[in-house]
Design a protein around this nucleic acid. Structure first.
Lengths: 224, 224
DNA sequence: CTTGACAATGGACACTTGTTCACCTAAACA
DNA sequence: TGTTTAGGTGAACAAGTGTCCATTGTCAAG
């Protein structure tokens, strides 16, 4: 049929819209459920009357090297991302990992009964290695502004927030004037608390009229 | 039997060593393969002569709330990590999350055929939000030294490393003198590559005798 | 000694699931 | 006009897989 080319060039050939839909569904299904869908679940999702409709698409996706499968085995997909090399070996003992939602520009409230729209992703951080300890309800915020550069927190960083009462010196996400900001929380005994920016060009200490601390920053995640 | 306590306290009751073994195998299997094992694969791993040996352990793990399962469905496990808050809502356009081992002070090689002892934890990073793209085989390193402070990477930070060839300007984990260091990779056309520390007090550019780049830094994670 | 939790064997059953064969439609193409 | 490709239907089969039953043995607690 086709002459034997020395090596496959296109790692991911163009997909049709239908194939892309299927692929996306598979990925999201795995994301939501933690395991892969079965052929018939895909069929049901797309209202196919025959499992073979799915089979055809899966074969196409395989041919185009978008996915890999183990023949005959249930729910065993592998998504071929452009730079995903095949796995080799095994980690041994794992520590615990927490799973937290990544919020966008939230201005009010915890991600308690937050609308799904508020969440723009998820972040999972190793507890031991990120010094992360809270059990629940934590979330992450993307940093805007440069008011914390002296604490080595920069614009675009993601900060893991643990909802709890702050202690003196904690970096907190606080609600001021309807907006969430990241500042250091200062509270000396017998004095009212205030917030402090970690930037020498923001020398002013914020006096507080109405201070709502949303939580304490526990870790920073930055893309490179 | 037992009086109705108002609410379950222990989210994860103590596991027997055998149960822990099974649980660990399931987790590692998923990490290696991207999907969950079947009952019979677990059976085979532990040389059980009967699938029911596995069933007993799975029931125990479920009773102790270490795992969840969808009855009757193949390869659908859910691991209940202690601090994982119960998933409330499903993110819609969820981005993908990668699960990577956290290596300690590795001095040689990828986590390719690495000894299990090399791993000191796990780190899971959202791809889109951490700019992380490779699905597996990546790992994380804890930063020692201050040679990258001008790139805002500090001692104790964890750096996510993606094994691949570097481009000019990438921050890389490189193997020099049997030790892994974090430096910026510089490669002008028609010139040999060299490494550069991002610290003005380390002004020297490292000339390279034998340079092995282990991978490219994709993200930074720091505890607070 | 008895009880109960833990661990494992052996065999059987039924649903899930991947797979295949035959056949159809519509659009693109030469 | 015939051919190819993407997309889909319908039915059936076999293997993969979860589940259940009856039984055995060990060991610590009561």
């Amino acid at each position: 049929m086709d002459t034997c080319s020395p090596k496959q060039v296109n790692t991911m050939k163009d997909l049709t819209t239908r194939q892309q839909e299927i692929l996306t569904f598979i990925e999201h299904y795995e994301w939501r459920n933690g395991y892969w869908p079965s052929i018939r679940e895909i069929q049901e999702k797309f209202n196919f009357k025959s499992t073979n409709a799915v089979m055809g698409h899966l074969r196409a996706l395989e041919r185009k090297e978008a996915i890999e499968r183990i023949p005959g085995q249930a729910r065993t997909f592998r998504i071929n991302r452009p730079d995903a090399p095949e796995m080799n070996e095994i980690p041994e003992d794992a520590t615990e990992v927490v799973d937290i939602p990544v919020m966008g520009d939230i201005a009010a409230g915890y991600p308690d009964r937050v609308e799904p729209a508020g969440e723009i992703g998820r972040l999972q951080v190793d507890i031991a290695n990120a010094g992360y300890s809270s059990r629940r309800r934590s979330f992450a915020l993307q940093v805007r502004g440069d008011s914390m550069v002296d604490a080595e927190i920069y614009e675009g960083d993601m900060v893991v927030i643990e909802p709890r009462d702050p202690y003196d010196g904690d970096i907190v996400a606080a609600l001021i004037d309807g907006e969430t900001t990241l500042k250091r929380y200062m509270k000396k005994s017998n004095e009212p608390p205030y917030l402090k920016a970690e930037n020498k060009f923001y020398p002013e200490l914020y006096p507080i009229n109405e201070l709502t601390v949303q939580g304490v920053a526990k870790a920073v995640v930055r893309s490179l």
